[in-house]
Structures are given as C-alpha cells and as structure tokens.
C-alpha cells in the first residue's frame, strides 16, 4: 500500500496538525518508507490468529462505588495551569460546528 499526499493531508486534519507543502512532501516520502517496512507483516498468514489487545490475563478490574469530594486545592492548581479561565470555567474560543 502506498500513501498519497492527499491521504497525508487527510490524516493531518484528523490529528489536528498543520503542515507546510514541503513538510507534507517529506512526510509522504518518509511515510512510504516506513509503510514499506511495515508491510512486511503481509508476508505471513494471520487469518486465524487471535489479536492480543492486552498482554495480561487480567479482567474485570473494578473499584467500589465510593465518592470522594473534589479537592479545592487541587482544582486551584489545575486552574492555575489553564491558559484562560473565568469563574471556575475553562475558557475556549467559540466552538464552530
């Protein structure tokens, strides 16, 4: 499989990354090199192999439904890190759907 410039641009949009035309050019080239290498996976028949999404035999890890009230000192520290806040809200530029 080869990836086209247009696909690279589409993927960039999905990832909310902006690239200059030169960067897109470079990425497309590097991408295709990496994909060539990754396409090695097609050499083997994986049809009947179960995928491993989790390496551990763990399952159904649960916590009790107990509430701890919010920590005001922590919230203060969180809001201090925020670029813009107002009245305890995070402030963001207008959302355009």
């Amino acid at each position: 499989m080869k990836i086209s410039r247009k696909e690279v641009e589409h993927v960039a949009a999905l990832a909310r990354l902006a690239f200059s035309p030169e960067e897109v050019e470079l990425f497309t080239r590097q991408f295709n090199d990496i994909l060539d290498y990754i396409n090695k996976l097609n050499e083997i028949d994986l049809e009947d192999v179960e995928p491993t999404s989790h390496v551990q035999p763990l399952h159904t890890v649960l916590r009790e439904d107990e509430a701890v009230p919010g920590d005001s000192a922590l919230l203060e520290a969180v809001l201090r890190e925020a670029p813009e806040t107002e009245n305890g809200f995070f402030k963001v530029p207008p959302v355009i759907d």
Binding site: E7, V11, F31, L41, L46, V49, E50, T52
Partner: peptide, 26 residues
C-alpha cells in the same frame, strides 16, 4: 501521531492495527 492516526483510520484498521495485534500473539 500521523502514522498512528493513519493505522487506526477507517479502512486501514484491519490492514494495519489489527494485524499488529495478531503479530503480538504469535
């Protein structure tokens, strides 16, 4: 990020990501 986004994007999941998970099993 680009490579990962591509590998998960619709139409490529089975060809890439799923195969990688199967390889993990082998």
């Amino acid at each position: 990020i680009m490579l990962g986004t591509y590998a998960l994007s619709s139409g490529y999941y089975d060809a890439y990501y799923l195969k990688a998970l199967k390889m993990r099993t082998l």
